[in-house]
C-alpha cells in the first residue's frame, strides 16, 4: 500500500486503472463483482464440481426438503425434486445454462450490434433517418414479446431461444453504439485525426472505440441482466430449454407442479435467478458509477 503513494505522483494511472480504483471503493459493488466471478467460475466448472448428475433420478429420495429441514438429508444439501434429482447439482448446472449462456448471448449481440451501430453512425440523410425510426420501432416493442415471436418463428428450444435473445439485444447495442459514435465524431480530436488524413475505419478503431468501450460494456451488463431474465422467462413459459435440462426458469416451472407440497423447488431456482441478476446489476451499477466519477474528477 505504501508503494502506491510513492508512485502516485510520478505515474498517472491509465483510464482503466482509474476506473478500477473507483470501482473497488464500494464494498457492495465488490460483493456483486465477487458474486459475478463466482458465477462465472461455476458456469465453467460446474460439471466437475456437482455432487450428482443433474438428470440422474434417485427414486429412493423423491421430494426431499433441503438439509436444514427436519426431513432433509445431508447428502442432498438443497433437497431433491419430484424425480429425485439433486437440486444443488441442478442449480449448479443451471448456472452454465442460464448465466453462462446469457454471457455468450451478450458477447455475440455486442459484436454484431457494435459493428452495425458504428457503420450506421457513418451514414447520413434519409438512410440515417429511416434507420433511426426503424430502431425506435424495434426498441419500443417489448423485448420479451419480440423474443417470443422469434421463438414462434424458429420453434421452441434452447438454441432458438438464444438466437431470439441475440436478435432482440442487437438493436440495443446498435442504438447505443450509434449514439456514442456520433457524439465522439463531433469532437475535436477526431477532427484532428481526420485532418491528419485518417480514413473512417481508422478513426473508428483508433480514436472512437477506445473512448466508447466503457459505455458499451456498461450497456452489456444491462443487456446481460435482461438476457438472464429473458432466458429464464422463456424457459419458464416452456418455450426455452427442453425438458430435462436444468435451466433455472424451466426448473422453476417444473417446480410449480409441486408448489404447495415442495416449495423449495420454486424458491431455489428463483433465488438463483435473483442472485445472478443482482450480481450483474451491481457490477453494472458500479461501472456506471465509476465512469461518472472519473468524468467528474
Amino acid at each position: 500500500m505504501a508503494r502506491h503513494k510513492i508512485y502516485q505522483e510520478e505515474e498517472f494511472p491509465s483510464p482503466f486503472i482509474q476506473l478500477w480504483l473507483i470501482f473497488r471503493q464500494s464494498p457492495v459493488v465488490m460483493i456483486g463483482f465477487g458474486s459475478f466471478l463466482f458465477l462465472t467460475v461455476l458456469a465453467v466448472f460446474s460439471p466437475l464440481l456437482t455432487p450428482y448428475s443433474p438428470v440422474e433420478s434417485h427414486l429412493n429420495s423423491l421430494l426431499l426438503p433441503p438439509a436444514w429441514d427436519d426431513a432433509g438429508d445431508i447428502s442432498y444439501l438443497l433437497g431433491t425434486d419430484n424425480l429425485g434429482r439433486d437440486m444443488l447439482s441442478r442449480l449448479m448446472h443451471g448456472t452454465s445454462l442460464t448465466f453462462g449462456l446469457s454471457f455468450i448471448v451478450v458477447i455475440i449481440s455486442l459484436v454484431i450490434g457494435v459493428i452495425i451501430g458504428s457503420l450506421s453512425a457513418l451514414t447520413k440523410g434519409i438512410k440515417s433517418s429511416f434507420l433511426n425510426h426503424f430502431l425506435d420501432v424495434i426498441l419500443s416493442i417489448p423485448s420479451l414479446l419480440l423474443a417470443i415471436v422469434i421463438v414462434a418463428i424458429l420453434g421452441p428450444g434452447l438454441d432458438n431461444t438464444l438466437w431470439a435473445i441475440v436478435m432482440v439485444l442487437i438493436p440495443q447495442f446498435v442504438h447505443i453504439t450509434r449514439n456514442a459514435v456520433k457524439e465522439e465524431l463531433t469532437k475535436d480530436y477526431v477532427l484532428a485525426s481526420r485532418l491528419d488524413g485518417a480514413g473512417s475505419l481508422r478513426i473508428l478503431s483508433y480514436s472512437v472505440f477506445p473512448n466508447i468501450i466503457e459505455k458499451i460494456v456498461s450497456q452489456a451488463t444491462l443487456a446481460q441482466s435482461a438476457a438472464i431474465l429473458d432466458i429464464a422467462a422463456l424457459g419458464f413459459l416452456g418455450l426455452g430449454a427442453p425438458i430435462p435440462l436444468p435451466e433455472w426458469g424451466a426448473m422453476l416451472s417444473n417446480g410449480i407442479d409441486l408448489f404447495y407440497i415442495a416449495p423449495w423447488t420454486v424458491y431455489l431456482p428463483g433465488l438463483a435467478i435473483l442472485f445472478a441478476v443482482v450480481a450483474t446489476n451491481l457490477v453494472g451499477e458500479g461501472m456506471r458509477h465509476a465512469i461518472r466519477q472519473r468524468k467528474e474528477s
Binding site: 419458464f236 420454486v266 428463483g270 441478476v277 446489476n281
Partner: peptide, 15 residues
Amino acid sequence: AMLGYSVPVFWLGLV
C-alpha cells in the same frame, strides 16, 4: 429498487 428491478416477475408472482 435494485432488488425490485432484478427479481424475476414470474417468481415474484408465485411467491
